[in-house]
Simulated assay, not measured.
Amino acid sequence: MNLELSEEQAAVRQLAEEFVGREITPHVVEWDRSENIDKSIVKKLGALGFLGLTIDEEYGGSGGDHLAYCLVTEELGRGDSSVRGIV
């Protein structure tokens, strides 16, 4: 049994990690203090395919598997649990 990430899963995790570093981490203290997040983050999550990640492409989703979904939510939660909750 191979328990390593596929190339696609590793790429999705890397994309999420970079997104967190670029779009979430710089703002997390401000968002926490104001008890609010920048609503534009939702559009950015959608543009990357993180919304509807496990929905088949034929129905408008990204066609990812459940492990990719877990990897994305883990990375988002590392940055800000509130953003993870959106996904």
Rank of each mutant, 00 (worst) to 15 (best):
E23R: 06
E57R: 12
V12C: 09
K39A: 12
V28L: 04
D80V: 04
E30I: 07
R78W: 04
E17C: 08
N36C: 14
E18Y: 11
A16P: 03
N2C: 13
I37A: 07
Q14M: 12
K44T: 08
G79S: 00
S62E: 03
V29T: 11
G79Y: 04
S62D: 01
Q14K: 15
D38E: 14
L53A: 03
V83C: 03
I55T: 13
A11W: 00
L48C: 08
Q9R: 12
R78G: 13
W31M: 10
S34A: 15
L71C: 05
A16Y: 04
F50N: 01
E35Q: 13
V87W: 06
G79W: 01
E23W: 04
N36I: 11
F19H: 01
T73L: 12
G79R: 03
Q9D: 10
E74W: 07
C70L: 14
A68V: 00
V83D: 09
E18Q: 15
I24G: 06
D80H: 05
L3E: 15
T25S: 14
S6R: 10
S81A: 15
G64E: 03
L53G: 01
E18I: 08
E30W: 10
R22W: 07
E74D: 14
V12R: 04
C70E: 09
I41G: 02
V72T: 05
E74G: 07
I37C: 10
I41C: 08
I55S: 00
T54V: 12
V12A: 07
C70Y: 10
E35P: 09
V42Q: 04
R78N: 13
I55M: 09
L53F: 00
C70G: 12
D32T: 15
G21Y: 06
G77M: 09
S34Y: 02
G77T: 05
S82R: 13
Q14P: 06
F19S: 01
L45P: 01
G46L: 08
D32W: 14
G77K: 07
G79L: 03
I55C: 06
H27P: 05
D80M: 05
T25R: 11
R78V: 11
V72H: 00
K39G: 09
S40N: 15
I37D: 08
F50D: 02
G49Y: 06
H66S: 14
